[in-house]
Amino acid sequence: MTELEPAGATTKNGAPEKYYVRFTREQRYMHAALFTSFLGLAATGLPMRFSESFWARRFATAVGGFGSILFLHKFFAVVLTIAFLLHLKEIFQRGVINREKGVFWGPASMVANWKDVKDIFGHMRWFLGLGPKPKFDRYAYWEKFDYWAVFWGMIVIGFSGYAMWFAPFFAHFLPGWALNAVLVIHSEEALLAVLFIFSIHFVNTHLRPDSFPMDMVIFTGVESEAEFEHKRTLEFERNAARGELEKKVGIAPPLWLLNFSKVVGFTAIFIGFMLLVLTLTAYFS
């Protein structure tokens, strides 16, 4: 079980554990804004999607009836839209204005490359005991998939959502049948997002034995040297070879931050699982 040790922890040979920065403060806030608004959207969207299930009406009544639930859904949608636009601005800033290297291409980029394809097959061979475990760089293929699934999902769900919200306006550019289609697209894509995040993302990122019970790096921003080297071997080795490892050294997360992150993280995971269970009961009943 890999957990980040609190400040002052030491490695086996007595040296203080080193921590490396993986995510900036802005990136951690972005993830928090993302999962908060996503949980809000899921909690207010699922009762509408499964409005005839036994829990939907009770839930809608609990938050103040159908008027409130639609209002809250739109509220979280606006929050998520703003977060998405801020992210686009950050990418534009880093990649285009600052001309930072490796944003759009290279081993540390989110953009998929040939190595990701090889990693998918290599990883699967390792699952079946047919080969060695591949070494991953800054972002593994399933992390890139998570990122692009959310990226694509926000465009698709966001566009179809706004098309319904402002249907008479969108009707100026869209054919009539598209107004029917946007609901299908919105609810199916959202269902995929809910099922994917609350089962696959949770397990792949947080609950798998390597990270169990939660990968704290998205909350604290730093990870221990051992974890860095183990999980993102290529990035570690590349930085070590260039002698740039020291640039990434951060401070050990304080105990309060660890505890706070655990409370927030486990609450989010708990809500997500509850929504997953409700979704599955509604889907299969």
């Binding site: 990883h123 390792w126 079946l128 005991g129 199916e188 894509e189 995929l192 994917f196 696959i200």
Partner: peptide, 26 residues
């Protein structure tokens, strides 16, 4: 549209469900 969305849902979830289960075990 519905057919495409259903196929997308089914294929993504099936692939990652298998992927995750095998990964967990290994």
């Amino acid at each position: 549209v519905r057919l495409f969305m259903n196929l997308l849902l089914a294929s993504v979830l099936t692939f990652f469900m298998l992927h995750t289960i095998l990964w967990l075990i290994r």
